[in-house]
Simulated assay, not measured.
Amino acid sequence: MKAAILESFGKPLTVTTAPEPAIGTGEVIVDVVAAPILSYANEVFSGARKYLLPPPVIPGCGAIGRVREVGPDATKLKQGDWVFCDPTVRSRDDALMPDIVLQGWSARGTGGQKLQEFHRDGGFAERIRVPTENAIPIGDIDAAEAGRWCAINTLLIAYGGLLALDLKAGETLLVSGATGNFGSATVLTALAMGARQVITPGRNEAVLAELSRRFASRIKPVVLTGNGTQDIAAIHAAAEAPIDAVLDFLPPSADASAARTAIMTVRPYGRVVLMGGVGMLGGDDLTLPYPWIMRNLITIKGQWMYDPRAVHTMVGMVRGGQLNLDHFAVTEFPIDDVNNAVSHAAVNNGPFKLTVVRH
């Protein structure tokens, strides 16, 4: 089969013939139709992000495709089913604290690296082997729409944070990092879930204006100055109600003070979920006042990826019309042009822009 291989960090991907994946019990082989290229893929492949992705490896985080072959323990999946290949693979021998690997992308901890030795190759290939539970049916689609369905790869991460927040219809949410790829996906998903209003602080006035154009009065953009006291006051002035929850998606390049400002806007008894990359590349820690957290009964939680059941309800929101994938502008590249696709994704990394490899 044809595949793009990362032979070593800092080198372009090599498109070549790779061995066919072999199926086993508890696994599914999927014919990949489209695979998303994350906006920061160039930073992963260069080694700048220092991801645990030992080359040589077929990279790629998630895919849309059709079932080619199922293992003997599959009871519902059948050949030809359209599925989302969920890259979030969990170990099966510890339900309480499962190890996690992002297949074709990264691993977490020693256990994750051990899991990665088997669930290693990602979606930049004609076929992929995934655990049975990671081949999740999405219903029949037009093959031409497979690239657009890759958007759920990003939306699911946002949705995972919103589920961790226990966001309820009618609540007011602040999205820290709303002008980025994951942050803007959070805005779209929160509105689909029935948020009363989404507060979108940021410094990129052009992107804030674009969010306002898309979602009108359901969002409240706030241009940040960098002065924490002034910015908190401006956010509270913009919100029509107390801010029930904050979801942070600021990237590794962001200063911790921006995340701190966002968190400090939440109401007493409010909830905060952290999913961004603040501090990953060095810089100040996120310091928050102990008395404020304690006396205001603030809940602060970290979240990585999403609960496996989230895929089913996310697909349900798309099928039910609450969440419209047409917000995403999709640019597709053939697998032979994968390196140009990676460069394109890095430059076109704004809200609702999606780069895809087609097979």
Rank of each mutant, 00 (worst) to 15 (best):
Q116F: 08
F124C: 10
A74P: 01
A237L: 07
A190C: 05
R148D: 11
I300G: 06
G112V: 02
D231K: 02
W149F: 12
H236C: 10
R129N: 04
A34I: 06
E20D: 14
L13F: 09
V89G: 11
L297M: 13
T229V: 15
M317N: 01
I293N: 10
E43D: 14
R309E: 15
Q197F: 00
A206S: 10
V318M: 05
K78G: 04
N204Y: 01
K220N: 07
A107L: 06
I152L: 05
G180C: 12
I298H: 09
P268G: 06
I335M: 10
A74V: 12
A209I: 09
T186A: 12
A310W: 08
D94L: 05
Y159C: 01
S257P: 00
V67I: 06
H344Y: 15
A169L: 02
R127T: 08
V272P: 06
P98V: 10
T265I: 08
T154Y: 13
F182M: 13
L102V: 09
A48S: 11
E145F: 07
G226Q: 04
M305W: 15
V83P: 09
R218K: 08
F249N: 05
V342E: 01
T154Q: 10
V278H: 11
I100S: 09
V342W: 03
A341R: 15
G277V: 05
L354D: 04
S212T: 12
I335P: 04
L173V: 00
K301L: 00
L115E: 05
D166W: 03
A178L: 02
V89A: 01
L6T: 08
N227S: 14
A107K: 06
S176N: 12
I298Y: 05
A63M: 13
K76D: 15
D285A: 14
K353N: 09
G65R: 02
Y40D: 02
N42L: 12
V347A: 12
D337K: 15
G350L: 06
N324D: 15
A135V: 01
V44S: 08
L250P: 02
I298E: 02
A143T: 05
A3V: 04
Y306I: 05
